[in-house]
Design a protein around this nucleic acid. Sequence first.
DNA 1: CGGGGAATTGAATACGTTCAAAGGCCGTGG
DNA 2: CCACGGCCTTTGAACGTATTCAATTCCCCG
Lengths: 252, 252
Amino acid sequence: MQKKITTDRNRKASKTEHIACENCDLFPLCNPIDIGGREFSLADEFVERRTPLQAGDYLFQEGAEFTALYAVTSGSLKLINRTEDGELVVGFVLAGETVGQTGIYPKQYPCSAVALESSHVCELPYANLTDTATQVPVLLANFQQMLHKENFDLHRQFAMLMARKNAEQRLAAFLLNLSMRLTERGANSSEFQLPMSRDDIANFLGLRKETLSRLFTKLHQSGAIAVRGKHIRLLDMNELKNASGLPQRNLS
Amino acid sequence: MQKKITTDRNRKASKTEHIACENCDLFPLCNPIDIGGREFSLADEFVERRTPLQAGDYLFQEGAEFTALYAVTSGSLKLINRTEDGELVVGFVLAGETVGQTGIYPKQYPCSAVALESSHVCELPYANLTDTATQVPVLLANFQQMLHKENFDLHRQFAMLMARKNAEQRLAAFLLNLSMRLTERGANSSEFQLPMSRDDIANFLGLRKETLSRLFTKLHQSGAIAVRGKHIRLLDMNELKNASGLPQRNLS
DNA sequence: CGGGGAATTGAATACGTTCAAAGGCCGTGG
DNA sequence: CCACGGCCTTTGAACGTATTCAATTCCCCG
């Protein structure tokens, strides 16, 4: 992982594989808007572009004052809560997704965001957004839409993971969730690299890493997936969906 | 349960114990607002007041078009997803809380809402809300605030329940979550009636009803709580918090 | 090629589930 | 008013699954 970072740094910024702006969840907020014949771009004026992060870097800390939303343009993050005994992984953020919105309400971030690998984010200061949104209705609408979708996704994930009883269902549901999210951004959703460690996945799913490891092996042997370290191929989607025990409708 | 309903119906509406409007999550949206010296009340114009529901009645169905938000003024609901093998309980709504917001994004309700007992709700048609909100900034702000809080609470509940590994921690966390929500509305939070069946709780927590029953007994014997059917008293909060295994900060 | 952390595998244990049966509560009917 | 019946809840015992702790292997990086 260290190597990757070094490589990345030595490269020109343009070499980093960023997600296309059109595939970014923040796009509706920072793409140019036509206002009375004039092109207006929040991005040009307010969005800090492509801040680099190294693996392990904190984007924001749990409890810190909420100041900005971020869009991940490359790499990925995990969301964690500190606890007495280590940490609790409460989510992952992939390239193209936004992070930080959940800090809006109590005006502080409810969890920390940590880079899982060399990553880049765009920063959208919240004050700028609200200022501008009150004057530009379409921007406000887009912002609200974004939050509503976020809430919807969270609800779905909650339903997906919370009540799934056995470990295999959880892992299958997790893989399908990842796959779905990759599809949404036009990435290859049947073959990808897991950016997070087995420990992080286990922590997130409420399992032990040993159990998780056995399950990867099991799904591999059943032919549903091919696993080689962090490299995953989803071979038999039907088998996987079956293993997840999820209703069809949640799997589109 | 049937008796309860009958009783309720035979009573005058005024006899039903509604939650005070000031303690309702919808209050910021329907309470009178001062606009240019004129008092304006969304409630008077748009809010349908106190629709009665009987136990088992559906407030809205999963997949139905999203049309309105609701505030529960008395009683309680459960939120469910239909699955191949029965149902999946994804949440509960208590008096004073709102329900339906999660339907905003895909414009349909992601789950069904079913009354657990004789209940009443206020209905706020969404079209009215958005129309008015664009003209009344303070209303818009209040609405957004409400949604943000909702999202925040969901996140917290996710962290509370999802990653708790053992069954006892889940139940303890669940009881503390209920207690916290009752406190928020000024209700007695150390002694209350569970509106839902053991089955519903077990379903929600991803456990079997038998396991749940054993846990109630265990917590009872440890002196943390007193259980008599659906009547619960929280006797030793420290013990409970301990049993939940949650970080202190989530328990305020 | 060798070191070290992450991942996997193995065996014993603990925990939650399952299936079966008994108990308790409440509404109905005698 | 009490007895009956149904349903929800509790209890019991055997079983299956996930955890624990330990040992080994794999793989990345020097």
